[in-house]
Design a protein around this nucleic acid. Structure first.
Lengths: 165, 165
DNA sequence: CAGCATAAGTCAGCGTTGTTGACTTTCCAA
DNA sequence: TTGGAAAGTCAACAACGCTGACTTATGCTG
């Protein structure tokens, strides 16, 4: 897997290939966010709300601190988003049982409904792209993306996924 | 290429696989932008400046209109960025010869120097990721990204690349 | 128990980057 | 010569990052 090209066949590492990869990443990310963005624009929410909703859905009961580390934003920034989501009844904040300083976050039914709308739209595009490219391409896609993350973020992400609540 | 799995082996299209793809895209994009962001932060520039510099470098002599369509922003938004780059002597704006309403954009030597700094950083990460994943994974990565773009953006992007000036 | 650390929330202010709307200037082309 | 395209400008606004300072509640440790 990691030992395919050693001395020959390094043409995929030319500057031109790398630049094309960079540009592909830029344009693909635009497509990636465009469908949820359209939905969010009708609701006075933005991408930050989407990200919060997404990860609360993925790990119900996660704490505010967990979430802001995962998202890589300050607590002030996250708090502004969480406050509106709680006020609007999409997210519920429960005081921790073992540690009462902590707030555990959950989606309400309404929050789950919006999460599903956003997720359906985003998954539809991802599904179409995966289907068009085929399973081997998808495996390569995942490999490259994993390698592109900061090691620290990759670690946090996997820890989050395994921790759940 | 497009006919690998027809009735069986569609496990790569499960909702869980799609969600993992979505999250990988989110975290990888963070890594993707982090190196240039660090450089830009020391210069009072942001990502919008980077994008303008990148595409002017890729297609010297492109017009303002070409650029704003490619970047998908309004002329007011692009103009604010271009103005600072021109004032700072990184970008040169030349009045068109055939059509004098048009402004053709070029990087100055100083602009090319910054482009190289930003690009070196971003390519280093891309190179490391490509190398770690291998050429077949890179091909798959590119295929999925291409399929994820809006068709209109993919068309514009390829047209831009071929047009040059 | 006293005191420090931690988790969360809040207020104020700021910067970047996107938006809309309205307007002017320049200039090509029918 | 007139309509429209291209470019630029001004104003206002919103989303969402940031820093800094502060409070409140709670947990932990000496």
């Amino acid at each position: 897997m990691a030992d395919a090209p050693v001395g020959e066949n390094l043409l995929f590492l030319t500057d031109e290939q790398l630049r094309q990869g960079i540009e592909a990443m830029f344009f693909a990310y635009r497509g990636f966010t465009s469908d949820p963005d359209r939905i969010l624009a009708t609701l006075a929410y933005g991408r930050a709300h989407h990200r919060a909703i997404h990860f609360i859905n993925r790990a119900p009961g996660t704490t505010v601190n967990n979430l802001l580390i995962l998202l890589g934003v300050t607590k002030q920034s996250l708090n502004r988003v969480l406050r509106t989501l709680i006020e609007d009844g999409l997210v519920e904040s429960r005081i921790g049982t073992s540690d009462k300083r902590e707030r555990h976050l959950y989606l309400t039914e309404e929050g789950k409904a919006l999460e599903a709308r956003l997720s359906d739209a985003q998954r539809a595009r991802m599904r179409a792209a995966f289907r068009a490219a085929g399973p081997e391409a998808v495996a390569g896609f995942r490999q490259v993306l994993e390698a592109m993350m900061d090691p620290e973020m990759r670690r946090r992400y996997h820890a989050f996924r395994e921790a759940g609540a």
